[in-house]
C-alpha cells in the first residue's frame, strides 16, 4: 500500500512536471506542423515570456491573467519578427536539407535571444511576487495548487487549440497548408500569413509555458534553454505534428522520468527518459500519437 501511494505520488509529480513542458512542446509542434522544421528558438521565447510576465506582475502590478496574456503576446510578436528576419531568408532557399538548416539557424537564433536577454537583465534569478502555497493533501497524495493550475491551464489551452483547428476557418486553413501548400494556395490562402500565425501562436504558447515555469521556479536568461531537450523529446514522442500528441508526450516524459527514480539513481533521470523514448520509438516508429487529431493528417 505504501509502495502504491509512493508510486502514485511519483506519477502526480511527473504529471505536474509534464504540464510545465506541455505548452512549449505544443508550440514547437504547431510550428513544425505548418513550417516543417523544428524551431529551437521556442526555448528562448519561453524565457522572453517569463520576463514579460515578471515585468508585468512584479513591476507593473498586473493581475495573473493579464500577465499571462502579455507572456503570450510578447514572445508571439517577437517570434514572428525573428522568424522573418532570421529564418525566412533561409527558408526561401530551396535545398536538400533546408529543414535541418532551419533547425540549426534556429539554435543560433535561440543563442542570440538568450544573450540579448542577458544583456538587458543580467544573469540574476528573478522572483515573481506571488504568494507561495503549501501543497494540498488529497488521498495521501500531495500536490501544489499552483502546479495544479499549471496542469489545468496546459490542458485547457491544448483543448482550445484543438477546437481552433477543427472549428474555425483559419484553423482549417492551417491544416490545409500543413497538408498541401499548393492546394492551399489554390484555395486562395496566403501561406505566409498562415506561417506567421502559426509562429505567433506557437511562440505565444511557449511564452505562457515559460512564465508558468518561472512562476514555479524563477526567471533567468537560461530558464527556457535548460529544458529544450526535454521539450524537443516530448514533441518527437508525440509525433511532431499532433497537438494532443505533444501534450501527452510531455506528460509521458514527465512521468517516465519521475517513476524511473524507483529503479534508477536520480542523477540518471533524463537518461531514463531518453531510453524510454528510444524503446517507444523502436516499438512504434512513427511516434506515440502520430495520426491522432493533429494539425497534419
Amino acid at each position: 500500500m505504501i509502495v502504491f501511494t509512493e508510486l502514485a505520488q511519483y506519477v502526480v509529480n511527473g504529471l505536474v512536471l509534464g504540464a510545465l513542458i506541455a505548452l512549449p512542446a505544443l508550440g514547437l509542434t504547431l510550428i513544425f506542423s505548418v513550417q516543417g522544421f523544428v524551431n529551437f528558438s521556442v526555448a528562448a521565447q519561453m524565457t522572453v515570456g517569463a520576463y514579460a510576465a515578471w515585468l508585468a506582475g512584479s513591476h507593473l502590478g498586473w493581475s495573473p491573467i493579464l500577465m499571462l496574456l502579455l507572456a503570450f503576446a510578447v514572445p508571439g510578436a517577437l517570434g514572428v519578427v525573428t522568424d522573418r528576419l532570421a529564418l525566412a531568408p533561409v527558408r526561401r532557399q530551396s535545398g536538400a536539407h533546408t529543414a535541418l538548416m532551419l533547425a540549426v539557424v534556429s539554435i543560433a537564433l535561440n543563442l542570440a535571444i538568450e544573450n540579448a536577454l542577458r544583456f538587458i537583465f543580467g544573469s540574476n534569478l528573478n522572483n515573481f511576487d506571488l504568494p507561495m502555497e503549501r501543497n494540498l493533501q488529497v488521498w495521501g497524495l500531495s500536490v501544489g495548487p499552483q502546479q495544479l493550475r499549471n496542469l489545468v491551464t496546459a490542458l485547457v489551452i491544448a483543448v482550445a487549440l484543438a477546437a481552433f483547428f477543427s472549428l474555425t476557418r483559419w484553423g482549417k486553413a492551417m491544416r490545409a497548408v500543413a497538408d498541401n501548400t499548393d492546394l492551399a494556395r489554390l484555395k486562395g490562402i496566403e501561406p505566409r500569413s498562415l506561417s506567421n500565425l502559426a509562429t505567433f501562436i506557437g511562440m505565444g504558447l511557449a511564452g505562457i509555458g515559460g512564465s508558468l515555469l518561472a512562476i514555479d521556479t524563477s526567471v533567468d536568461p537560461s530558464t527556457g534553454s535548460r529544458l529544450i531537450l526535454v521539450i524537443f523529446a516530448a514533441s518527437v514522442l508525440g509525433g511532431l505534428t499532433s497537438l494532443y500528441g505533444a501534450v501527452l508526450g510531455a506528460l509521458v516524459i514527465g512521468v517516465a522520468g519521475e517513476v524511473a527514480m524507483i529503479a534508477m539513481p536520480p542523477v540518471y533521470q533524463s537518461l531514463t527518459a531518453f531510453l524510454a523514448i528510444l524503446v517507444i520509438l523502436l516499438v512504434k516508429p512513427t511516434g506515440l500519437f502520430a495520426g491522432a487529431t493533429g494539425v497534419r493528417k
Binding site: F232, V267, L271, F274, L275, L278, L282, T286
Partner: peptide, 28 residues
Amino acid sequence: LLTRTLRGDYLAIVTLGFGEGLRLVELN
C-alpha cells in the same frame, strides 16, 4: 542498426539523447 526502422528525424533525437546520456555517465 538500432534505429534502422526509424525515420531520419528520430536518428537525430536518439543521437541527441546519446550525447546528453553519455555526459551523464561521464559525470556520475
